[in-house]
């Protein structure tokens, strides 16, 4: 009788141990460097040719086309690790970027050449906005009109095309729009231009190269 009770008393902890032993973590969340899919087969090209850009409206004190060409030539050579050259393609009208027949005739030898082209527009405007202080003082009826602040807003709209020079096929096309505002309403647009262009470049290069980003994923052990 006593032996049986002892046996039973010993078996209960054994059961508990067995149950505890069976419980385990079933998944783990880890950070994985996952690449984005490459959009352009860069390995197929040896040269990157930067054409002229179509500028719909010129900006005072800033040669948008020249600045863009110089910037993209230097940046693409560095980022894509290829030889980058400038090609003269003065446009009389807005070119048909999506027309494959248009591009091969511009280059005598477009073999293994990737073409960067596009259109750009830099606009500036003055906007009025309520200042932080003014929002707090909205209860005071005489304060409203006095705290309006003027801001200079500069916007860069840029459409970039990567084309296979030999055939004129569009390999990549994207429209970018970046904005920056200044408290100084006399700030020239050229002041913001390179900052906006740099923002575009980061997005463009990330998309084309398929740069990896750290992302969460669950690994399951059942």
């Amino acid at each position: 009788m006593r032996r049986n009770r002892l046996l039973q008393a010993g078996l209960f902890p054994l059961l508990l141990f067995a149950w505890a032993c069976s419980s385990s973590v079933s998944y783990k969340k880890i950070l994985v460097e996952i690449p984005a899919p490459k959009l352009v087969p860069l390995d197929e090209f040896k040269i990157i040719a930067v054409t002229d850009f179509w500028i719909a409206k010129s900006v005072p004190d800033l040669d948008l086309n020249r600045e863009m060409r110089t910037y993209w030539r230097a940046e693409l050579a560095r980022q894509f690790e290829k030889t980058a050259v400038l090609v003269e393609t003065p446009f009389e009208a807005e070119p048909a970027f999506g027309d494959p027949a248009f591009w091969p005739r511009l280059l005598s030898d477009g073999k293994e050449t990737l073409l960067l082209t596009g259109k750009a527009q830099l606009t500036q405007e003055t906007r009025k906005a309520l200042s932080e202080d003014a929002r707090k003082e909205l209860d005071g009826p005489f304060e409203r009109g006095k705290k309006l602040l003027e801001r200079r807003v500069v916007t860069l709209e840029l459409s970039l095309f990567l084309l296979r020079a030999e055939t004129g096929d569009v390999l990549y096309k994207k429209d970018f729009k970046e904005t920056k505002s200044f408290e100084n309403t006399k700030q020239p647009a050229s002041f913001a231009f390179f900052e906006l262009l740099h923002k575009v470049k980061l997005k463009f290069v990330r998309a084309v190269l398929g740069e990896s980003r750290a992302q969460d994923r669950f690994l399951i052990s059942e």
Binding site: A36, G98, D99, F161, A207
Partner: peptide, 22 residues
């Protein structure tokens, strides 16, 4: 998350397609 990662690429491809159709 896998689909979201590919989504941005698909959008870019759509834009490319539109450009060709222009």
């Amino acid at each position: 998350k896998f689909k979201e990662n590919l989504e941005s690429t698909d959008k870019d491809k759509e834009q490319k397609g539109k450009a060709a159709d222009e």
